[in-house]
Design a protein around this nucleic acid. Structure first.
Lengths: 233, 233
DNA sequence: ACAAAAGTGTTCGACATACACCCATGG
DNA sequence: CCATGGGTGTATGTCGAACACTTTTGT
């Protein structure tokens, strides 16, 4: 039996497995992506997604969380698998497949410091530079998945601060879908789901000020269980 | 530079990369899945998806096509990546991540012979046996993706013979969504897309006989380009 | 007082759903 | 002649899309 096992696995090829993180953030009404300068040859100094090799005893998801924590200092970030990239010669160095995972994080000044220390930069999603290897493709694919997911799940809330205004939320959806939405219809729909809690405070960055809301995770979980369809667009 | 490269890759862990195929077929109004008896330890003799290790110089997609051709004799099968499974200890043998890909094929007698030669079996989707490792999960995930995809793309046609009747198509969608559809509404919707060509012939397995149709790939491509939404349910 | 963004309802059209009967044929 | 599955049209409701004006307040 141990013999069988050896026979079966031994002649097979091993290869590197990496994970690359597509890190989305939202700021100033813009969807942004965190990229950084590659620190190793080949292609040293080029813009790249951040990633890492997966260790022999490490879940692929854990590898991505590890990387993310190193860069941003944040734990338990919302993250989801996008897809894998397995072309034989996608990496000119060695054979290496990559599992792309996308993350949604709240941009704030604390994160920014950490990020800058690692030579990283937040780019607006439609002003991305050329990235190494197949990383531009990875971003495109992840953005598609994000759009798709946002149709059915209130995913956007991961990208906003805890308290946010309806106009901010609308800006976010406009940034994801890259098209303008009608303010009245948007407000109507988003409130109809009953997963937003209106607070007493106002955000006063505009003249008039807009009421702040927070997301009601509890109610949302209940809705999900009852087979709810959370479409938004 | 070559030194840099070595430093960077050398200390990293290599592992096995496999691909597992979730092979859907359609027959007798039933959505079916092709599974087979595992021929190697551990878990020899248990039901399993069919898969293979990816070779060092082989695209992951190519590995899946290779496996599929070995078993069914078919080339260029419709196949799409489902997701990857990367838990550290998912395979009790060695560290091995797997890229799951699902395929849609037309079941016919020719295939069946080849398939039986490999100890494989077509199971109805809701009567699956226990499969090894995380393979039941893989099937569930792939079925979700299939449902999702079927909403927006006329994916079902991959599972039917070239010529098919509207009732057959309806049965297929009923099998995928696992719910009954209204015949009049279904016919109306599916014809409204103008991608079916009605033939003169009839399928005569029923008393009255139903007109055969074929899928108009050309028109469909045009529709897709013009940003068409092909929802069906 | 005016500029700038927040907030608020109604109408219209499109599309999904529900629903029942006649038709063609083989046995 | 009857059992079986194929084929057809209409009425109703729901939901998304379009649309304009008033409110608040900082400058």
């Amino acid at each position: 039996m141990s013999g069988d096992l050896k026979d079966f696995y031994a002649p097979q090829d091993k290869m590197y497995v990496a994970t690359d993180c597509i890190i989305f953030g939202f700021e100033d009404g813009q969807l942004k992506l965190l990229v950084f300068k590659r620190r190793v040859e080949p292609l040293k100094g080029e813009w790249s997604l951040i990633g890492s090799f997966v260790k022999i005893d490490e879940d692929v998801e854990a590898a991505a969380q590890r990387v993310l924590e190193e860069i941003t200092g944040l734990k338990n970030i919302f993250m989801e698998q996008s897809r894998s990239y397995g072309a034989a010669h996608r990496d000119p160095g060695y054979r290496c497949i990559s599992i792309a995972q996308y993350a949604l994080i709240r941009i704030n000044d604390y994160d920014k410091e950490l990020v800058e220390k690692h030579g990283a930069h937040w780019y607006e999603i439609d002003e991305l530079p050329n990235l190494v290897l197949d990383h531009n493709q990875m971003v495109e694919d992840a953005l598609d998945k994000l759009k798709q997911k946002a149709r059915y799940q209130p995913i956007g809330f991961e990208l906003l601060p805890e308290k946010f205004t309806i106009p901010q939320l609308q800006q976010l959806y406009e940034a994801i879908y890259q098209k303008e939405l009608d303010a009245r219809n948007f407000r109507k729909k988003v409130l109809s789901h009953n997963v937003l809690i209106k607070l007493e405070e106002k955000d006063k960055t505009s003249r008039r000020g807009a009421f702040l809301y927070k997301f009601d995770h509890r109610t949302y979980q209940k809705l999900l269980k009852s087979g709810y369809n959370f479409e938004m667009s």
